[in-house]
Computed example of a mutant assay.
Amino acid sequence: MNVKPLRIVIVDDHPLFRHGVRTLFLTAPELEVVGEAGNGEEAIALAQSLRPDVMLMDIRMPGLSGIEMTRRITVMDPAIRILILTMFEDDSSVFTAMRSGAKGYVLKDADKDELLRAIHAVGNGEAIFSPGIASRMIEYFAVTRPAAREEAFPELSSREREVLYLMTEGASNADISSKLDISGKTVANYITNILNKLQVSDRQEAMRMARDSRRE
C-alpha cells in the first residue's frame, strides 16, 4: 500500500538554508517539500493555499515573527503542524513558541536523523523537542512550585506579568506608573522586555496573548 508523503513547507529567510533542507529531504521519499517562504506574509499565503502537513518554522523572520506566524496558522488551520527549527534555545523562545501552538522545537544544529524523526513525530500529532531542550523543560517543571506550573508566561518576571495584565485592562503607561508607583521610563523598559520575551512586535499582540491565556 502506497503511503502519501508528508507535505512540507520550509519557512526561513536564508535561501541557502532552505536549499540545504530541501536537498536533505531528497533522500527521504516519505517527505515532499511543496513550498518555501522567506518571510511571514509568504508563509501565511502558502499555509492558506497549500494546507501542508508540516511547516518548518524559524523564529526570527522579517515581517511577522515565527511566533506570530505559528499563532495565526494554528488558529486558521489546526491540522497544519508547526515544527520550530531555529538556532535560538533560550527558555523564553521555547515557552513562547509552544504556547503559540508549535508541536515541536528543534535546533538547526540537529543531525539529519534527529530532524527527520522530529518531522515524522510532529506529522503524526506528537510533540517533540531537541534532547537538550527537553531536559531543561523537565528540570524547569520539576523544580517549579505546583502553583507556578500553571502560571501563564513563565518566561516573564512577576512584575512583567503584572504590567502585562494591567495593559490588557486598558491601562496606559501613565496609569501603570501610578498604580505600581514606578517611573514612566521603568514602565517603558518593562514593556520592551515583555515584547522581546514574548517574541511579538507590539503591545497589541502581547495583550492578545494575555487575553487568550486567561480563556485557557
Rank of each mutant, 00 (worst) to 15 (best):
6 L>H: 09
64 L>S: 05
77 D>H: 04
172 S>M: 08
111 D>P: 01
11 V>K: 12
129 F>W: 14
200 V>S: 05
68 E>P: 00
199 Q>A: 08
47 A>V: 01
212 D>S: 03
80 I>D: 13
212 D>P: 02
141 F>W: 14
17 F>Q: 06
62 P>A: 07
62 P>T: 07
189 N>T: 13
58 D>P: 11
48 Q>T: 08
72 R>L: 14
57 M>L: 09
197 K>E: 02
86 T>W: 00
94 V>T: 03
63 G>H: 02
164 L>M: 07
147 A>I: 14
161 R>E: 12
91 D>I: 09
49 S>M: 01
45 A>D: 12
53 D>G: 09
8 I>E: 12
182 I>W: 10
43 A>C: 12
186 T>P: 02
77 D>P: 01
39 N>P: 11
63 G>A: 07
215 R>V: 12
170 G>V: 05
212 D>C: 02
38 G>S: 15
23 T>R: 15
145 R>N: 12
196 N>H: 13
41 E>D: 07
117 R>M: 07
98 M>S: 04
73 I>Y: 03
170 G>H: 04
32 E>H: 12
166 L>R: 14
124 N>P: 04
41 E>C: 00
40 G>A: 06
49 S>W: 00
147 A>S: 14
9 V>P: 13
91 D>V: 06
189 N>I: 12
39 N>F: 14
25 F>V: 05
105 Y>D: 07
11 V>Q: 10
31 L>R: 11
101 G>H: 04
113 D>G: 00
80 I>P: 08
37 A>S: 11
91 D>H: 12
182 I>T: 08
48 Q>A: 10
180 L>Y: 05
149 R>I: 09
86 T>N: 07
6 L>I: 00
173 N>I: 09
169 E>M: 06
106 V>P: 00
153 F>A: 04
161 R>S: 11
48 Q>M: 08
179 K>H: 13
196 N>L: 10
35 G>E: 06
30 E>R: 11
37 A>K: 14
30 E>C: 04
